[in-house]
Amino acid sequence: MSNVMIEMNNIHKKFGNNHVLKGVDLTVNEGETVALLGSSGSGKSTLLRCINLLETPDAGDVRINDYSFTASKINKHVKLEARRRTAMVFQNFGLFANKTALENVTEALITVRKKSKSEAIEIGRKYLDKVGLLEQANQYPSTLSGGQKQRVAISRALALDPKIILFDEPTSALDPELVGEVQRVIRKVAEEKVTMLIVTHEMDFARDVADKVAFMSEGQIIETATPSEFFTNPKNERTQKFLERYLQRFSYSI
């Protein structure tokens, strides 16, 4: 049995009267790429944000590899510990607008990981190279295309060497012709056995890149399976409906 990177037990989250997460359980093993699917409003992004505590869960337990916490005991310190074990790639890139591409990658290495500037720059250049953006190292985000921005965000996440990288709809804000370059980079990262949890609406991409698919509906994960099993032989009725709708949309476009 491989090392567990994420283990969530019975996670609950409410926004006012809106009960978004109703007891979610999720396990992600080391080196695994897990795609989190589900219709809009099913709680996928909220679940992701409950791992690095950009949202605070109301109840439940979370373990990030060697670090465990329980929802009722979350404070500033717990948040920092959780965030220092994870990295996130946002839908809207979340690049620091006042920093160059390279500085975006080195910033946390210097301020959080306390690496020397020269070491940070070396690491930063290595990871920018990995996503094919070494030439753009000194450009500001405003001068980069959406696809380039997201690749910088991915190299920033990789450089932190986190236990897991959380992707929150990484291609949803991109122009269609830029989706491919970002997906290719994520696929490359997956091949290197970096642990990833990806919220996405791109079914083909999920099928292609994921080792495991988790399907969320109405605040719960109702089905977890390998991609081939999930897409060809879904067990749950709601999963079947969801996939039918998706396939229908697909046939329309033909």
């Binding site: 994870t86 979340g94 620091f96 946390a108 959080v112 990981r113």
Partner: peptide
Amino acid sequence: GQMEAAESVGM
């Protein structure tokens, strides 16, 4: 999102 991004990297 800038604050969130900064917090997400552990600042």
